[in-house]
Design a protein around this nucleic acid. Structure first.
Length: 592
RNA sequence: UGCCCGAUGGUGUAAUGGUAGCACGAACGACUCUGACUCGUUCUGUCUAGGUUCGAAUCCUAGUCGGGCAGCCA
């Protein structure tokens, strides 16, 4: 379906993170480059995540490395299996045929195993290729290991159990421009900390009654170093780990150690984690681990205009039924883009083309639209379809006669093939392709004017038939049959060529015309982005299609000539009931 | 008033002390049995002020502007 030619031919991208990786490869610092994509299963993946996926899998791919799909599931209150399933599907779709050989899973149910590294006891979880009895990595599979590491931190005097309430913890933390104060529980003995932490795990204390904290520096100018919490008490079951735990690790503690356990070399995340990096390093260094430590690198997230890219706001669109669901074709979610008919290759090309920097920028959505059109231009089969039909009668063709014509399937192909279509007395043309009072430079059908029916012949408009109310019911024309391909006057030139379908040999279909969801470039900056939803973001029409489209395939992409790119809706289309989504219109430089 | 990060045409990005380039976009033109594609021409840029240097987008200093950080979220 999707043509990989463009992506494959594109030069390997270069950016500051890839430069660092390339240097590490040159130095032979690591045996293998291992990255990871670590979503929290609390929502659907969107175009912003696609950038991270393509970065992480792209780097792995460029160095024969590996990229782990890992669920960062340390907060059971917000997470659901529905999301681990959708995320897995979306990631696999996005990288299919491109980097799936880099995707690493683990045996189903596997946990980190005891190993010996550099002569010292260690823990490691080995990757396997996705397949039977495998699954993605889960941070929650490391809870036992993480607990052991916490015990070790306590023994080393680098962590303590704190009895401060959440409110008091906040107060003691101070402010960015003001140092915090040390917790009164900061200097408990190792024995007491060990005892208390074990009892936290055993469920002896209620939610938030105590926490485990790293002992770092309450006066640090970086607030994340002011004795950050490592564990909190939450008496809730976990979607993956079951009901074994009532203490759950926090992101900063779990993430760096998960990276270590999986042997990640480059842990790539977005800019807001920059201030967390010292903590990431502190935890790993505090444990004196025997293998090479992972390192964190940060880049600016993708922010395209005319879109919202925030789980909270996307959720609102779903909940308030502005869209039909997370996979509504107007949503910037991966599932929405997929349902809309956008090839994964176009998503990849777009997110790669914007580059990787530390500069917060707004990317023009036109860049995405360009990537989509460009991929589809080579991949899509051309077909004739009329969205808003108006009847046209070719008065010199007898009723019942079928004149065979050959239509090109894809002019971009190296050896273009054709398919047969037929011209009949009655055809439909696009309402927009006729104007009784044409504007200047109007190339289409107008009174007394000539136009070519694509792949058929030139016609001349003789008569406009109207009903009693003055509405146009049909256009009567003369077909110049000697201007058909292969006929003596085939080369006759007219300014306009329009598409059409036979009125007697066509199929009906519902066609959904999608447009931008928002009318302003920065909807998220509005007081209420619901107020700037584009009322015309979805228009449904009953279209007439050429007969070959009756057997359209879900995975195929079509260009309805002169209109745009279309694909079958995977949810609502069924045998005998065609539903097409407009992926994107053709570029239109004809100012209306 | 604290700490961290950043700033190159309309947008995104490259140039790693040596000719500011590429893509998107826009405008105009050529071609055209898709007003698409393709091709051609044009458009607009190094945040400011000092300094180092034969030479600065790049290094230094100060400033300006923007983003991030005070969840028992990630």
């Amino acid at each position: 379906m999707t043509d990989e030619k463009n992506t494959a031919a594109a030069p390997a991208p270069s950016d500051f993170i890839r430069d660092i990786v390339a240097q590490h490869v040159a130095e032979q610092r690591y045996a293998k480059i291992v990255t990871r994509f670590p979503p929290e299963p609390n929502g659907y993946l969107h175009i912003g995540h696609a950038k991270s996926i393509c970065l992480n899998f792209g780097i792995a791919r460029e160095h024969n490395g590996q990229c782990n799909l890992r669920f960062d599931d340390t907060n059971p209150a917000k997470e659901e299996v529905e999301f681990v399933e959708s995320i897995t599907t979306d990631v696999r779709w996005l990288i299919a045929g491109w980097a799936d050989h880099c995707l690493a899973f683990k045996p189903k149910g596997a946990h980190p195993a005891p190993v010996t590294s550099n002569g010292k006891p260690d823990r490691y979880i080995a990757p396997v290729p996705p397949g039977e009895n495998t699954e993605a990595f889960f941070a929650s599979d490391y809870f036992d290991a993480l607990y052991e590491y916490a015990l070790e931190l306590i023994r080393r005097g680098k962590a303590y159990v704190c009895d401060l309430s959440p409110e008091d913890t906040d107060k003691y933390r101070g402010a960015p421009d003001q140092p915090g104060r040390e917790s009164p529980f900061r200097n408990r003995s190792v024995a007491e900390n060990l005892d208390l932490f074990q009892r936290m795990k055993a469920g002896e204390f209620p939610n938030a009654a105590r926490s485990l904290r790293a002992k770092i520096d309450m006066a640090s100018p970086n607030v994340w170093l002011r004795d950050p919490l490592l564990y909190r008490i939450r008496h809730v079951p976990h979607h993956h780990a079951g009901d074994k735990w009532c203490i759950y690790p926090l992101y900063d503690y779990a993430h760096c150690l998960s990276d270590y356990l999986e042997g990640i070399t480059h842990s790539i995340c977005t800019l807001e984690f920059e201030v967390h990096r010292p903590l990431y390093d502190w935890i790993l260094e505090a444990l004196d681990l025997p293998r090479a430590l992972p390192h964190q690198y940060e880049f600016a997230k993708l922010m395209p205009n005319y879109l919202i890219v925030s789980k909270r706001n996307l959720l609102r669109l779903v909940q308030e039924k502005v869209v039909s669901g997370w996979d509504d074709p107007r949503m910037p979610t991966i599932s929405g883009l997929r349902r809309r008919g956008i090839p994964a290759s176009a998503v990849r090309r777009f997110v790669t083309s914007v580059g990787v920097t530390k500069f917060n920028s707004v990317t023009d959505i036109a860049l995405f639209e360009h990537a989509i059109r460009d991929e589809l231009n080579t991949a899509a089969a051309r077909r004739l379809a009329v969205l808003r039909p108006i009847k046209l009668v070719l008065t010199n063709i007898p009723a019942g006669e079928s004149i065979p014509c050959a239509a090109v399937n894809n002019p971009q192909a190296e050896n273009p093939t054709t398919r047969p279509i037929v011209l009949t007395r009655e055809v439909f043309i696009e309402t927009d392709d006729f104007a009784e009072v044409p504007p200047p430079k109007y190339f289409r059908l107008k009174p007394g004017g000539e136009v070519r029916l694509k792949y058929a012949c030139i016609i001349k408009l003789d008569e406009i038939v109207k009903d009693a109310a003055g509405a146009i019911t049909e256009l009567r024309c003369t077909a110049q049959l000697d201007t058909r391909s292969g006929q003596p006057n085939a080369d006759k030139k007219v300014k306009g060529t329009i598409h059409w379908v036979s009125a007697t040999q066509c199929v009906d279909a519902e066609v959904r015309l999608y447009d931008r969801l928002f009318t302003v470039p920065e909807p998220a900056a509005e007081p209420d982005f619901i107020k700037v939803v584009n009322p015309k973001s979805l228009e449904v029409v009953q279209a007439k299609l050429e007969p070959s489209l009756a057997s359209a395939q879900l995975e195929d992409r079509y260009q309805f000539e002169r209109l745009g790119y279309f694909a079958l809706d995977p949810k609502d289309s069924a045998p005998g009931k065609l539903v097409f989504n407009r992926t994107i219109s053709l570029k239109d430089t004809w100012a209306k």
